[in-house]
């Protein structure tokens, strides 16, 4: 591990023009992970209001927020940035958010997490409809069935309430991880490789677990529904098959 002097010198040269006092830096590292000392230096400088710190931070990190494009337009991202400035540097009740950055990972990634949360909150206050599909498990249930032809569309409309309830009950029977897998895969659009990386597992394992979770979900929905609904067996099978095909094909993305 580099000495404090070295860390300080390195951090200073990493952010030319941002002059943080050495004792502030030292105090800041206390209780934080010095692996990201350079980034902590900048975070501290921002919180302390060191000249040019905010500009440097924005110049370096705000460009990455383009990745939020999946949540909204450029104008929306501008709103997110505005909100972030306030929260990161000044805080909502006088406690700048950047204080929370403990150097557990790259600042860029940490900021991505904060920005995502801000974006979600903004969406919620804007009452955005597209967002609703991301929010709850309605999204999982609402995977489009419309193309499936008139007869099934009709059935879905007709039995909508029962169906949703059955689906929710079925989902509750899965274990926590299986549910999260399904949601991250189908709702958040993570790929197999990304999921595998996230859970320190391999793509085939993730693939098998997803299939198992999906099968279990359908099985449980079937069980609940057949108790409750008086549709014929053929109709029920058709509906379930349809969901199955949507779950396995469309939500896979790319098709």
């Amino acid at each position: 591990m580099a000495s404090l002097d070295e860390q300080f010198a390195k951090a200073q040269s990493a952010w030319p023009g941002v002059e943080l006092a050495r004792e502030d830096f030292e105090a800041w590292l206390e209780g934080r992970d010095a692996k990201h000392a350079d980034e902590l230096y900048l975070a501290c400088a921002c919180v302390k209001g060191v000249p040019r710190a905010h500009e440097t931070f924005e110049a370096r990190y705000f460009g990455d927020l383009r990745s939020l494009g999946r949540f909204g337009s450029d104008a929306f991202i501008d709103d997110v940035k505005q909100e972030l400035r306030q929260r990161l540097f000044f805080g909502v009740n006088g406690k700048p958010k950047l204080e929370e950055y403990g150097g557990k990972g790259a600042l860029k990634q940490w900021l991505a997490a904060v920005a995502t949360r801000v974006a979600l909150n903004l969406k919620r206050t804007h009452n955005d409809e597209r967002f609703a599909s991301l929010d709850g498990d309605d999204g999982l249930f609402e995977l489009p069935l419309d193309e499936a032809g008139p007869e099934l569309g009709h059935m879905k409309e007709h039995y909508r309430a029962e169906f949703k309830k059955a689906f929710a009950e079925a989902l509750a029977t899965l274990d926590v991880e299986a549910r999260t897998y399904l949601r991250q895969y189908y709702l958040d659009g993570l790929g197999l490789v990304q999921l595998a990386k996230l859970y320190g597992s391999s793509a085939p394992t993730v693939s098998r677990r997803l299939s198992a979770a999906r099968a279990k979900l359908l099985e449980a929905t079937r069980a609940v529904l057949s108790q409750r609904l008086k549709v014929t067996k053929v109709e029920l099978e058709s509906i379930l098959r349809l969901i199955e095909s949507r779950l396995s094909a469309d939500a896979l993305g790319g098709r």
Binding site: R60, G63, D64, R66, S67, K108, Q109, A112, A113, T116, R117, L120, N121, L134, D135, G136, V176, R179, T180, R183, Q184, D188, G189, L190, V193, Q194, L195, K197, L198
Partner: peptide, 25 residues
């Protein structure tokens, strides 16, 4: 994560970020 879609979406975004590097430094 099971009960909080916000945190789950954040984790998903982070997982995505680790595989899609952004180059604008």
């Amino acid at each position: 994560l099971d009960g909080c879609s916000d945190c789950r979406i954040i984790v998903s975004e982070l997982a995505r970020g680790q595989t899609e590097a952004h180059v604008n430094e």
